[in-house]
Nucleic acid binder design. Structure first.
Length: 425
RNA sequence: GGAGGGAUGGCAGAGUGGUUGAUUGCACCGGUCUUGAAAACCGGCGUAGGUUUGUAGCCUACCCAGGGUUCGAAUCCCUGUCCCUCCGCCA
């Protein structure tokens, strides 16, 4: 959510910045709404003030043993007028909140302008796609022969867009997650966390999934409005919701390996084959809570933390800066890491690293106290995948496949695989 | 699943219908004292919104959340959430 002061002040400037990301701000509507809201608030507060002074007078008169009936008669209709004013104010406020909650974050100046992913700007490429002297298989065909990767079985157990992994593939999946988690904690200084995979409404509101994007979530049949997490970002970032942390507690660097559940996956018929797009997938998430002046340095660091994993796994990838039109609503700037998939002969997203500045912090009321400042200040929040485990698994399978149907295990994973240098599929 | 007790400012903890936004202590900030520090003493110290040129003043709201009673609610009633204790059950 944007700073309400910004929205009450220079709306035109805000509208211009939002136009960069293809969002057209209803300046006139908001202005009218705000002036009406303000008027109603003033009226309500006047009535409240009147009620308070009269009630105090009644209390005083009663204490002096005077007859208070005449005073009571005077205030008889005040309550009704006050109720009406309050109701009107609440309606106007709700209308304003509704309008404001749909406004995305302002893009950072360095974000390239564009409408879609076609306009994203490549930052750099690392690694060279292999030249295969045999016909490459995609992960579906690779896994089918042995049955170690079984989508048909998942259909029977649940339905479309789930996967069953068995044997060495299941172990490789676990090895990847362990390797990522160990790298983030031991090499990059993140604190390992175990978090709930079910969260409440307030948490989803804090990170921005609600109220606008509820249809992307799996919701439990429970009156408490519990939802399965769509990403570890939700529980981790909400650590600081409604908190005032001391400055020396920052930066807070958190990581967790969690499953992620997404209801929308595949609703548009994209990536129907294989485990690119699933309702359930695992991810190691990085979250940083930082002081505002350090958030862009932290963004570069986090991108590096994600890139280090791909380099260690010897996977070719590229980094793109998302253009204004392709960013999520909460982000001010986002890098995507895209890994090379030989079967598709293209780069596919495997990590997304974003600086949300104070957009989420404001929704969450997440603040910190600087010793020299009297008022608590909003923190900046960043999140990034480090990495998506499922997509990483298929990238390893496809990139490191051999002519004999085996897959070479990247060196850093071998310790997690009982020393195996390759697996036979 | 059953029975009880709680939720108040950064923290601890008073307050059961009438100038109580709220006693007090700790923490924090400023000052006096001191060579310096500590101690002691004095003062300050919540958040949000409105009004305003104004981080001044004034006004309004907020004592877990949402409803209700009342001229008036931190205080009484209802619902919900969370925490604690005991019993049962369970990984």
């Amino acid at each position: 959510m944007l700073d309400p002061k910004l929205l009450r002040g220079d709306l035109e400037a805000v509208a211009q910045q939002l136009a960069r990301r293809g969002f057209s701000l209803d300046v006139d509507g908001l202005t009218a709404l705000e002036s009406r809201r303000r008027e109603l608030q003033t009226r309500t507060e006047e009535l409240q003030g009147e009620r308070n002074t009269r009630s105090k007078a009644i209390g005083k008169a009663k204490a002096n043993g005077e007859d208070i009936q005449p005073l009571l008669d005077e205030v008889s209709d005040l309550g009704d007028r006050l109720d009406a004013a309050k109701q009107a104010l609440m309606d106007a406020q709700a209308e304003w909140d509704d309008a404001v909650s749909g406004i995305p974050n302002l893009p950072h100046d360095s974000v390239p302008e564009g409408e879609s992913e076609d306009d994203n700007v490549e930052l750099h490429r690392v690694g060279t796609p292999r030249d295969f002297d045999f016909d490459v298989l995609d992960h579906v065909d690779l896994g089918r022969k042995s049955g170690y990767l079984d989508f048909d079985l998942a259909v029977k157990l649940t339905g479309a867009r789930f996967a069953v992994m068995r044997g060495p593939v299941a172990r490789l999946h676990r090895a990847l997650a362990q390797f990522m988690l160990d790298t983030q904690t031991l090499a990059h200084g993140y604190e390992e966390c175990y978090v709930p995979y079910i969260v409440n409404r307030d948490s989803l509101r804090g990170t921005g999934q609600l109220p606008k994007f509820g249809e992307d979530l799996f919701r439990l049949d429970d009156e408490r409005e519990f939802h399965l997490i769509p990403t570890g970002e939700v529980p981790l970032t909400n650590f600081v919701r409604d908190e005032i942390v001391e400055a020396d507690a920052l930066p807070m660097k958190l990581t967790a390996h969690t499953p992620c559940f997404r209801s929308e996956a595949g609703s548009h018929g994209k990536d129907t084959r294989g485990m690119i797009r699933q309702h359930q997938f695992d991810k190691v998430e990085m979250v940083q809570i930082v002081e505002p002046e350090h958030s862009y340095a932290a963004l570069e660091d986090m991108r590096g933390h994600a890139e280090a994993l791909l380099q260690a796994l010897d996977l070719p990838y590229r980094v793109v800066t998302l253009c204004t039109g392709d960013m999520g609503a909460s982000a001010a700037k986002t890098y995507d890491l895209e890994v090379w998939l030989p079967s598709q002969e293209t780069y596919r997203e495997i990590s997304s690293v974003s600086n949300c500045e104070d957009f989420q912090a404001r929704r969450m009321q997440a603040r910190y106290r600087k010793p020299e400042a009297k008022k608590p200040q909003l923190v900046h929040t960043l999140n990034g995948s480090g990495l998506a485990v499922g997509r990483c698994l298929l990238a390893v399978l496809e990139n490191h496949q051999q002519a004999d149907g085996s897959v070479t295990i990247p060196e850093p994973l071998r310790g997690y695989m009982g020393g195996a240098a390759s697996i036979a599929l």
